[in-house]
Amino acid sequence: MVVLVLLGVLALAVAGCVCVVWAERGGPRWVRAVATMTLAAGTVVRHSRRNRRPGLNGSTGDDG
């Protein structure tokens, strides 16, 4: 059961990446919407990892 869930998540990630590439080449409106959601989800994950484990990436946390 866990394997099926992981395969589903992997399929969604691959489909999102395909939509991002297709949207860059001028795909239809729904592809651009999926690409926007995919990029937003990636940003959320990236920020949540940064906030959860500060200091493990070797930086001081000072962006400026």
Score class of each variant (00 low, 15 high):
42 G>S: 10
45 V>C: 08
64 G>E: 11
53 R>A: 10
46 R>A: 14
60 T>I: 06
37 M>S: 05
55 G>D: 08
17 C>G: 13
36 T>C: 04
12 L>Y: 07
37 M>E: 02
4 L>A: 15
53 R>G: 00
27 G>K: 00
60 T>P: 00
19 C>K: 01
47 H>Q: 14
28 P>N: 12
57 N>I: 00
31 V>D: 00
9 V>A: 14
15 A>I: 03
45 V>F: 12
46 R>V: 04
39 L>K: 14
51 N>H: 02
46 R>M: 14
61 G>S: 03
47 H>S: 13
13 A>E: 09
24 E>P: 00
63 D>L: 12
36 T>G: 08
58 G>N: 07
38 T>M: 11
26 G>K: 06
20 V>P: 01
21 V>W: 10
14 V>I: 15
9 V>I: 14
54 P>L: 02
19 C>G: 00
15 A>F: 12
41 A>V: 13
44 V>W: 04
26 G>F: 04
55 G>F: 08
24 E>G: 15
4 L>S: 08
52 R>L: 15
59 S>R: 14
43 T>F: 10
33 A>D: 08
55 G>R: 09
40 A>R: 09
25 R>Q: 14
27 G>V: 01
37 M>I: 02
50 R>F: 05
12 L>T: 05
45 V>E: 05
6 L>G: 13
28 P>H: 11
1 M>R: 13
31 V>I: 14
54 P>Y: 03
27 G>A: 15
44 V>G: 02
34 V>M: 12
52 R>Y: 05
37 M>G: 07
59 S>T: 15
13 A>D: 07
12 L>W: 10
58 G>A: 07
30 W>E: 11
28 P>G: 15
44 V>F: 08
23 A>Q: 03
23 A>I: 01
40 A>F: 13
59 S>V: 05
13 A>T: 11
38 T>R: 11
15 A>K: 04
58 G>W: 07
43 T>Q: 02
4 L>D: 08
29 R>N: 03
47 H>Y: 12
64 G>I: 06
58 G>C: 08
32 R>T: 07
5 V>M: 13
14 V>Y: 11
63 D>H: 07
23 A>W: 01
59 S>W: 09
12 L>C: 13
60 T>N: 06
9 V>E: 03
38 T>C: 11
40 A>S: 15
36 T>I: 01
22 W>D: 06
23 A>C: 11
